[in-house]
Each structure stands twice: as structure tokens, then as C-alpha cells.
Amino acid sequence: MSATSPAARPGIDPRGPRFGASITSVLLLVVIALGLATPLGGTLVERLTEPAAVLQTLLVALFAWGAFAGIARHPYGAVFRTLIAPRLGAPTEREDPAAPTFAQGVGLLVTGVGLALHLAGVPYALVASAAAAFVAAFLNAAFAYCLGCQLYVLLVRAGLLGRKTA
């Protein structure tokens, strides 16, 4: 509708969050492999210092960064802008940062709950939460899947979001 070029319009390059999601996907697979390889520790300190838990803690922190500071300030975004974007050329479209920021919040919730349950001694909590987060991150990276587009309407249907029916 506007005559300005896509690059001049506000918003972020949609390939940025997809690049970040591909790194996240790989790290989540590593969490799952480490989680399956190591038996659940008997004490809180053992569970906290397990390799899978350490990596999951890092992922929780990265999701929190994206969710609270906004996707535009995420460290992966800086890597994308300096190393990847200059080699790709201008994006054909721009994206509102609200949707990928929402997805970061969902990632934070899923990985955060998994980490908390793991620390509480629930077996396979890390593996299960990392697997759920992997599905979303992989779909985002490989298929440009928009979590906000699918999940939001399901939450509305379940009555968890939106105006209550009279």
C-alpha cells in the first residue's frame, strides 16, 4: 500500500528470528541427548550441575532475554545482522517483532517449567520440555512456522484468552 521499499518500512527482518531458532533447535537436541545419557542426580546440586541442566539454564536465559528485552535485542539477532544479513541481500518483507517476541515467551515458559521440574527431581522433565520446545523452534526455522498464529487462537478457543462468553 505504501510506496516505500520493504527495507525502509519499520519492523525486523523475518529471517533473523528464524536464524536464531535454528541455533536454538540444535542446542535443544543437545539438551535431549545429554539428558537421556545422564541419569537423574540424587541431590539438587547434582541435578543443577548435570550437563543437560546447565545447557537448559542457558537456553532459559536466552529465551528470557528475547521475551523481556524483545526479539530485536536478542544476541542471535546481533550475530544475524553482522554476519548473515549482509550476505543475503535485502529482505522482501518486514515483520512485526511482536510475534517472534511472543514465541520467545512461550519458549521461556516451556523450558523454564521443564528446568524447574527437573530440579524438583521429576525424571525426563528436561527431555520432555526440550522436545516440545524443539518442535516449535524447528518448525519456525525450517518452515517459517508462526507460533502466535496457531497457538493464540487455540488459547482463545480453550477459553484461556479473550472476552468470556456471556
Binding site: 498464529c149 496457531q150 487462537v153 482463545v156 478457543r157 477459553g159 472476552r163
Partner: peptide, 18 residues
């Protein structure tokens, strides 16, 4: 906005937006 029309969303069986 689906948030403002939850009944319509359910009635029509909408699974994703848009």
C-alpha cells in the same frame, strides 16, 4: 480480532490465524 470473538471462532472451527 479472535480474542474479541471467541464464540465465533468456536462456532466456525477456526484453528489458525489468519
Amino acid at each position: 480480532d479472535v480474542t474479541e470473538h471467541p464464540d465465533l471462532v468456536r462456532e466456525l472451527g477456526v484453528l489458525s490465524t489468519p
